[in-house]
Design a protein around this nucleic acid. Structure first.
Lengths: 393, 393
DNA sequence: TGACTTTAGTTCGACTGTCGTACTAAATAG
DNA sequence: CTATTTAGTACGACAGTCGAACTAAAGTCA
């Protein structure tokens, strides 16, 4: 029922153009006739839309077509293909110890991906330098937008950081500072990092086959992103998915926040390290990598991870009952541990869920540290692919 | 990004018609000129749409206009008003011990509301009789649709009951049996009862001021409905919000399901009665009414309810952290107890939430036993008001 | 080789819709 | 009685989709 305002005939064209773009992205290249039958539009309409897109340099006729199983008879088709680099979305991540940028193609390819440590400098300065490097001036006019992922609470206007306890930045001017680097025509929005990572796994990662997803990321803290019916669930103040300090872990585990039973106190990075008796390394993922290697030869480590899996399952049982996701993706430090943790978590879920038939599939994230930036880039495309916005041609 | 298929020019008219209807519903009657400025459409467009609607008998010119603060000059406006009864939606509820029907007007008025006990008969038979009584034959052509709320899991097609442990009905043929009573042009859908009740509170009840809502209903069991960004969160299999057996109550409380710590074991009707030491009466609401009366004179009862409020807050702290609703509405047997329970629940929430600023407002449901049926009726209107569907004129 | 078949893509006219402008209608002010 | 002001309508320009007819480009087959 989210219907914005009045619609006119130009609006119809925008929507149908978006429909064709989505079809090309998801279903791959195809002739006009094929696109017409795939989208349900009339052949003439597809022809007009393709002509527009060709003029705008967004698609072209793929002459180098391999024509694999060409039908024996009839005029040969001229497949239409998305033009790489014609439209790009910029995804940024501003985190405590690193920044990242992903430049994403309209066809879904990652054109560039860069990560930089912050190393005590001003994170926004480091990010700004990265932006000017990743987005060369000639690419700026083809930018459909930029989305900046931050570990914090984002205001309802998608432009301000309302609360980011670990990040020492000026939440009010952040979007403007990035926008200044990208020119006046590039819309800049801010989003939550866990939300972006969830979006990335849903579109490019481990959960492209569902639209009902819970993403759980483990570092020192625990965060979640919720995707329901293909849309992010953000809550009334954008705080949805802040599950780190929810009392759904081992009830007695003391947490740094002063309470007991916080999930983070049971399955945060430090709790995991206590359970296996191993030291922390440079990053959570590197730490977990070392733990996984050690587990191969050390039964005590395996037992510790099994216990971790128990606590993961305990909390997921609550979240799964509330949200009923089809898939749960675990990211962050959970990725290297994989089945060492998930196996037990699945067993706990089966035990605790009322109807085990609704048990979500547990998977490990397919994207690395770039998940949030990639999801941010994908979100930059969302208005275009929904037909809500004019193409920047 | 939920974009269905190709759009054509007729589709534009459907959407703009829906826009005008929503404006009339929410903003009240208004002249064509006023509607034009309220919707952002051109005067001529509104004129054409109003002409269509007038021809279809959905709106008319309100000659009996009181014209309260008529502007001193200029041609007087002819206010356009929704015609009562011109379009109606039917909401039904099929429950274990009663059935209910609500006939809702396009303007949002309840035309009829009937509840019947099942008394051991076939609930579907009782419901069918109620339907034929509530929907007279002459009203059938004006029906925009019917939605049936059931206490169970609804299939993804919105037409079948996949799982309804307490309900002894044939889930497969249910929608068809209702549709047979209403004629071939009336679309019939099935929905979850807690979802419908949540929808009702969001549109007609205690939470019309927000689009981010958690509805909690208390009877013998506990159920929840989640509204995020104005849309119901249903989960991958429609099971979202089944919070009764989630371990977020008193950890040691034994539950009928064999586990410990289920929320239902702490805040279900029977747990409440144990806490206050009073007997169960005919219905949960009547029981709670008696408890509330007793609380006025009995400090022990008040203490029991205070303890109940503690357990309510305990679980809500988890749900609020996960979902971050702006408002939590408590329905069912909680309504008569009101502040006797909510006061303590608020205190627990303040204690347990990471950032008390995000504490949702706790309210008591404004709708009685008809909540689910009313929400179902409102949902019957949703496709019309979203412009997804042609008016049945 | 040349007519026939088959499929792809374009052209064109009918239709539907929105929008802005000009026009008509209906009231008050002076 | 005229000027002013506001509401509503008529009309033509414009944008878009659609289906049917048409053109284009291949293979098939006598």
């Amino acid at each position: 029922m989210t219907v914005t305002g009045g619609a006119s005939t130009e609006w119809v064209r925008r929507r149908n153009t978006a429909l064709v773009l989505r079809e090309l992205r998801q279903g791959g290249a195809g002739s006009r006739a094929e696109l017409a039958s795939r989208t349900g539009l009339a052949k003439a309409t597809v022809g007009a839309i393709v002509a527009d897109l060709t003029a705008g340099g967004v698609v072209s006729e793929d002459d180098s077509a391999p024509a694999p199983e060409r039908p024996a008879r009839g005029r040969p088709s001229r497949p239409v293909v998305l033009l790489g680099g014609s439209l790009v979305g910029l995804g940024l991540e501003l985190n405590v110890d690193y920044v990242a940028a992903v430049l994403l193609d309209v066809s879904g390819d990652v054109l560039r991906h860069e990560t930089r440590p912050v190393d005590g400098g001003d994170p926004v300065e480091v990010l700004s330098a990265l932006v000017t490097e990743v987005v060369p001036p000639e690419a700026a006019p083809r930018l459909v937008g930029a989305v900046l992922a931050v570990p914090g609470l984002v205001g309802g206007d998608d432009r301000t950081v309302a609360w980011a306890p670990n990040l020492d930045v000026d939440g009010a001017g952040l979007a403007e500072r990035i926008a200044a680097l990208l020119g006046p025509d590039c819309p800049v929005r801010i989003a939550n990092d866990a939300d972006c990572a969830a979006y990335a796994e849903a579109h490019h990662g481990a959960a492209t086959d569902t639209d009902s997803l819970l993403y759980l990321t483990g570092t020192v803290g625990i965060g979640a992103g919720i995707v329901s019916a293909g849309e992010l669930v953000r809550g009334g103040t954008g705080f949805a998915g802040e599950v780190g300090h929810v009392p759904i872990g081992e009830p007695q585990a003391p947490c740094g926040c002063g309470r007991r039973g916080c999930w983070e106190a049971s399955i945060g990075l430090h709790a995991m390290l206590r359970a296996v008796g191993l030291p922390e390394l440079g990053t959570p993922v590197a730490t977990a990598q070392a733990v996984a290697e050690r587990a191969a030869v050390d039964a005590d480590v395996r037992a510790g991870l099994d216990h971790l899996g128990h606590d993961v399952g305990l909390g997921l049982a609550v979240l799964a009952a509330v949200l009923d996701p089809s898939v749960v993706v675990l990211g962050g430090y959970f990725v290297p541990l994989g089945e060492l943790v998930l196996d037990r978590a699945r067993a706990v879920l089966d035990e605790r869920l009322v109807d085990p038939l609704t048990r979500p599939e547990l998977r490990v994230g397919a994207l690395g540290i770039e998940a949030a930036a990639l999801g941010a880039a994908e979100r930059a495309f969302a208005p275009i692919l929904a037909g809500e916005v004019e193409l920047p041609v």
